Amino acid sequence: MARYKALSAELDPCARQLAERLRGLKDHGELTTRHLAAKTGYSAKSWERYLGGTSLPPREAVEALARITGADPVPLIALHEIAADTWDSRRARNPAEPLTPIGPAAPPTAVLPAAVPPTPAPAPGRFPHIALAAGVVALSVALLAALLLLLRLDEDATHAAVAAPPATTATSPPPSYTCRISRVDGRWSAGLNKGRNDEIVYGATGADVAEAQCLLRRAGISPGGIDGMFGPLTLRAVKAFQQRSGLVVDGMLGPRSWKALRG
């Protein structure tokens, strides 16, 4: 499990909870920031900032992490919306100027009272403006909290609204693969990689991975979806197959593992 720096005590509670949820998904999927960069299109440095709570991740990055780890994106998206609102409000709001402190009377050796300039009075109408801004922020947070509750109560309807693929130019939709299991020259094939037995490892993508996923499913071990992505579920399936076949359990598909898969 990765070691993280402690989140800042000044971090908004919603942003803190979002960062902790993203850390948990990353650790559960046994992913590194380099894996996240390869699978989501956002750089490893960006993921270090997102997971460290120093930068709020885009909604598309949250959806991408949920997709590759098999998590439900709806609660994460709702939490991101609340965190984004409070995050933007804090950044847009200028810090209040400190008032001149009123201290004890100056000692006899200090500057004469006549030379001390009077403390400037606060500009009229300043405090009502601050109170109004605070009220608007509080109302926004309350409305977003109500939206989160509605999302949880009506998850099916909301899922249809957010199920569209994220509009981002950083990544393209993964290709779809169909298993066509057949016996060719005494060897099993899914018809996806023309019978290649190239070595593939965790983090690989493409038709070779999809071929292996189809053959693992044929062998009775589920690799998750047939998506051409060598992720945590496929890794566990490969190790289970290697153990069952009496091979070295290293999680890599080399010539011996391919030979056993193809029968």
Score class of each variant (00 low, 15 high):
130 I>K: 00
255 P>F: 01
39 K>V: 05
208 D>E: 11
253 L>V: 15
67 R>T: 10
76 L>W: 04
93 R>T: 14
144 L>Y: 00
198 D>K: 03
239 K>C: 08
234 T>C: 13
56 L>I: 09
166 P>H: 00
132 L>N: 06
32 T>A: 06
202 Y>M: 08
42 Y>N: 08
247 L>F: 09
249 V>W: 13
87 W>S: 04
48 E>L: 06
245 S>K: 02
156 D>I: 07
174 P>S: 01
92 A>S: 15
145 A>R: 02
24 G>Q: 08
171 T>K: 09
106 A>V: 12
73 P>L: 08
203 G>T: 11
201 V>G: 06
254 G>R: 12
15 A>R: 14
174 P>F: 02
26 K>L: 14
259 K>V: 05
208 D>F: 01
230 F>W: 09
263 G>D: 13
206 G>N: 12
179 C>N: 04
112 L>H: 13
158 T>R: 13
73 P>H: 07
96 A>G: 09
107 P>I: 14
232 P>G: 03
30 E>Y: 09
87 W>N: 03
229 M>C: 02
245 S>Y: 03
153 L>Y: 00
19 A>Y: 03
63 E>V: 01
4 Y>H: 10
73 P>C: 08
185 D>Q: 11
184 V>K: 06
57 P>G: 02
178 T>C: 08
215 L>V: 06
152 R>P: 00
176 S>C: 03
113 P>K: 03
261 L>R: 11
135 G>V: 00
220 G>Y: 04
13 P>M: 12
156 D>F: 07
205 T>V: 05
85 D>N: 11
134 A>T: 02
91 R>D: 00
144 L>I: 04
64 A>C: 04
172 S>K: 08
4 Y>K: 04
156 D>Y: 02
84 A>W: 13
92 A>E: 13
143 L>D: 01
254 G>H: 06
133 A>K: 10
38 A>M: 15
191 G>W: 09
7 L>A: 15
132 L>H: 10
145 A>Y: 10
195 G>C: 05
210 A>H: 06
170 A>Q: 07
218 R>Y: 11
138 A>Q: 00
5 K>G: 11
113 P>E: 05
22 L>M: 12
187 R>T: 14
121 A>C: 11
23 R>D: 12
7 L>N: 00
244 R>Q: 15
179 C>Y: 08
139 L>E: 01
231 G>R: 03
78 A>P: 03
75 P>G: 13
87 W>V: 15
209 V>Y: 02
247 L>V: 04
87 W>E: 10
159 H>K: 13
259 K>N: 15
